[in-house]
Design a protein around this nucleic acid. Structure first.
Lengths: 199, 199
DNA sequence: AACTTGCTAGACCTATCATTCTCATTTAGA
DNA sequence: TCTAAATGAGAATGATAGGTCTAGCAAGTT
C-alpha cells in the first residue's frame, strides 16, 4: 500500500500558501480568487482543495503565519539595545518577502477582523502576544528608570501597537511622503511618549 | 413634457447613498452587493441604475461625502480652545450616524486606496486638506510657543493624522480594551509629542 | 507484474454577482 | 386631456465566483 509523504505534502502546502500570500497582497482577501491563487501556484483548483478545505482556510493560514512572524519579529526587536530605534527602523525596511507581504496585508487583516470572526480571533490572539511583549519591555524600562513609571504598561503597549498600525496609512494618504523624515519624527514621538517626565 | 425635479432627484440619491453607507459599513466595499443596497434602500436594481452609473460610482460618492465630513469635522475641532482634547474626544464619540459610518469605513477606504486608483485619488485629495489644517494648527501653536518649534509642521501633521488612523485598530486588536484609559494615554502621547522641549 | 492508493488535472456545477432589458405606472407640461 | 418623459419593478443576461466530480496517471506494496 502506498503511504502519504508528510514532508512533500507540507512543502506543497507552503508553496500554495506563498502563492496565496502574493495574490492576497495584490488584490486583498476578498478580491483574490481561487483561480488567481491556482494560476500563481501553477496548480489546478481540484488539486488545491486536496491541501485546503476552503478559501477561508487559506485566508486563516495566511493570517496565522503572517501574524506569527510579526510576533517573532517584535520579540527580536525588543531584545535589541536601542529597541525604539529598531522598532522604527523595522517599519521601514521589511527583511524578507514574507515580512513584506505581511506588512501589506496588515490593514487588510484589521478590516477583515471587523467582519470575519475567525480572522478576529486570530488577530486578537496574536495582538495579545504583541501587547505582552511590549508591556514587558515597558515594565523593564520603568524598572531601569528609562521609561515614565506613570504609564500603565498594558495601555501604553496597546497604544504603541496601534500607532504602528497607523503608520501603514502614511504612504496611502500621501504617496510622496518623505518616509525618512516621517520615521525620524515617529521616533521622536515614541521617545517623548515613553521618556520619564521631569517635574 | 415632464422635467426632472432636481430636488426630489437629489433627495433620492441621498437616500440610496445612506443605504449604501450602511451596507458598506456592515460588509465592506467589496462584500456589499447591489442587491444588499437595493434591499436596504427598498428599491429595485433597475431603479438604482437611474441614479448611479455603477457600483464604483456609489463607492466613490460614499468616500467623497465621508471624507469631506471628516475634513469639516477637523476644521471645527482645530478652532476649539483645547484642540488636542477635542481631537481625542472625537475619536471616541462620533456625533451622528453619518460620522459613525465614516469612522467604520475609514480603514476600508485606506485598504481600498491601496488597490483602486479612484479611491486613492479621493483619499489623497482629502488627506492633503486634513494635513494642511493640522499643519496650520501646529504652526500657530509654534508661534504662540505652545508647540515645539523643532517639529516640521507638515511632517508632524502627517504623523498625527496616521496616529488617528491607527487608533481605529484598538478595538479590533483587543475588543475588551478600556477605551477611556487608552484615549487618556493617547492624549498624553500627543501632548508630549507637541509640547516644547526644555533644555 | 498486479493491485491499491495517492496525486493531478481540468471539465463541470451551482450560486451569485453587476448590469441591462422590458414593461407597467405615474406625473408634469402642452 | 393627451403624451412623453420620469419613475419604478423585476426578470433576464453574461460573467465569474467558490467548490465538486471524474478519471487518467504515478508510485508504493505484495
Amino acid at each position: 500500500m502506498r503511504t502519504v509523504d508528510p514532508v512533500k505534502h507540507e512543502a506543497k502546502r507552503r508553496e500554495i500558501l506563498d502563492a496565496a500570500g502574493r495574490c492576497f497582497a495584490r488584490k486583498g482577501f476578498q478580491g483574490a480568487t481561487i483561480s488567481n491563487i491556482c494560476a500563481e501556484a501553477k496548480i489546478s483548483p481540484g488539486h488545491l482543495y486536496h491541501y485546503f478545505a476552503s478559501k477561508e482556510a487559506i485566508v486563516g493560514a495566511i493570517a496565522e503565519v503572517g501574524l506569527e512572524a510579526n510576533v517573532e519579529l517584535l520579540a527580536r526587536i525588543m531584545a535589541k539595545p536601542d529597541a525604539i530605534a529598531a522598532l522604527v527602523a523595522e517599519v521601514r525596511h521589511p527583511k524578507d518577502q514574507r515580512e513584506k507581504t505581511g506588512q501589506v496585508l496588515l490593514l487588510d487583516m484589521l478590516v477583515e477582523a471587523g467582519r470575519n470572526p475567525a480572522m478576529a480571533g486570530i488577530l486578537q490572539e496574536h495582538s495579545r502576544k504583541l501587547q505582552t511583549l511590549l508591556a514587558d519591555f515597558i515594565r523593564k524600562g520603568q524598572a531601569r528608570g528609562q521609561i515614565d513609571p506613570g504609564l500603565d504598561p498594558e495601555v501604553a503597549a496597546g497604544i504603541v501597537l496601534c500607532v504602528g498600525d497607523g503608520m501603514r496609512a502614511l504612504a496611502l494618504r500621501n504617496p510622496e511622503v518623505d518616509m525618512g523624515k516621517s520615521l525620524d519624527t515617529l521616533k521622536i514621538l515614541l521617545s517623548r511618549f515613553l521618556t520619564p517626565q521631569k517635574p
